[in-house]
């Protein structure tokens, strides 16, 4: 039984780390800052959560503390992504030429 849990935990660790790798790849390949934030925020959240779950399988005694780190990440990761996106837009960060529509910029021009 312990062995099965160990293997599940190990596989979760590898799965989580693979998502981190996709995130890193997205960070390098994506054309503009918004797409990079998207790639970074989503993959690091799931990647780290899976890693924490894997660690909890390997060391069940650490479960509560790992859960605490996970809860913290679920709340803070999207918040920092949103703050970065918000700052990027307010600073007028360059958008990829593929971006066809920007309702936010349109609405702000309308107000100004």
């Amino acid at each position: 039984m312990g062995l099965i849990l160990d293997i599940i935990g190990g596989l979760l660790l590898v799965g989580g780390a693979s998502f981190l790798l996709f995130g890193g790849l997205g960070l390098v390949r994506m054309p503009d800052i918004y797409n990079r934030i998207q790639a970074g925020a989503k993959t690091t959240t799931l990647g780290t959560l899976l890693t924490l779950a894997g660690a909890a399988c390997l060391q069940p005694a650490w479960g509560w503390k790992l859960l605490l780190i996970g809860v913290f990440l679920i709340f803070t990761n999207p918040v920092s992504a949103q703050v970065l996106a918000n700052t990027a837009h307010r600073r007028g960060a360059e958008k990829s030429p593929l971006t066809k529509i920007d309702r936010l910029a349109e609405d702000q021009e309308g107000k100004a």
Binding site: A17, L20, I33, I37, T44, T48, T51, A55, A81
Partner: peptide, 25 residues
Amino acid sequence: SRLDRVVAFDVLTVIAITFIVLAAL
């Protein structure tokens, strides 16, 4: 841009958390 670096930094720190957990294991 500087903001691109902050985005990368954010991802780096979260990956570092994974490293700490792996080191703990």
